[in-house]
Design a protein around this nucleic acid. Structure first.
Lengths: 113, 113
DNA sequence: GCTGCATGTAAGCAACTCCTTAATTAATGA
DNA sequence: TCATTAATTAAGGAGTTGCTTACATGCAGC
């Protein structure tokens, strides 16, 4: 009984690849089929399929089937948590909100890691 | 002639591990020795050393030696780029600034991925 | 039904990740 | 000098990633 990585790790890991980031960037233009998405990449279709699976596992895209096309849609919710983590760790805010942050964290019993 | 992963990928990859995120969180309290850093983890010292190497490679920490101690210091600059990428891809801003963004991107000739 | 198109799954492979234990380096202090 | 302390390096193993090619699935139109 082994549990997989936590949600935040899945998101960061999904973002840790230029191809996947480019896919997400392209999806900002609106829902897109896998074929359109794969077209600009010098990479086989199955490779793109696998990248999409990683993005889907992280909750960053949604795939809906209609006829023989799979339409991919960007889902930005998981980025909120990622953004919150990054913002909490950068710049001048840290020193100022460190104590409050710590307080809230221990109150909620989360690990913050 | 193979080039390593780009800077942004290194940062996201470094963040894609709970142990490393926890290390960064702990470093917000100020510079810390490897020993102090390793103490709360159920993991061998070499494992921590290797995590620190990943963080260093991503530019997220700096290690300075004094006597037999290595002091680790948080460096937040790489998070700025990560933050910029995430913010550009989330929320309502996307639709509004998509065109401008695309315009700037193509003008500068960057890939944005 | 069969054919073609869009996509996914399977299997395989090199490279990498994340951990381990054992050995090594380097500084401290009696 | 020698033992102790702090940390890294080395070697190795189980599992994962990121690609490949080959095969399978599933829908559309004839």
């Amino acid at each position: 009984m082994q549990q997989g990585p936590d949600e935040l790790s899945l998101v960061f890991q999904a973002l840790a690849d230029p191809t996947r980031r480019e896919i997400l960037s392209r999806l900002r233009g609106g829902p897109t089929t896998v074929g359109e998405l794969a077209e600009p990449f010098a990479m086989s279709r199955p490779a793109i399929s696998q990248h999409l699976k990683v993005l889907e596992r992280a909750g960053l895209i949604e795939r809906t089937a209609s006829a023989q096309w799979r339409t991919c849609t960007l889902r930005t919710e998981p980025l909120d948590e990622a953004s919150a983590w990054v913002e909490r760790h950068r710049g001048e805010w840290n020193a100022r909100f460190d104590q409050l942050d710590e307080h809230l964290r221990t109150r909620k019993g989360t690990t913050d890691a």
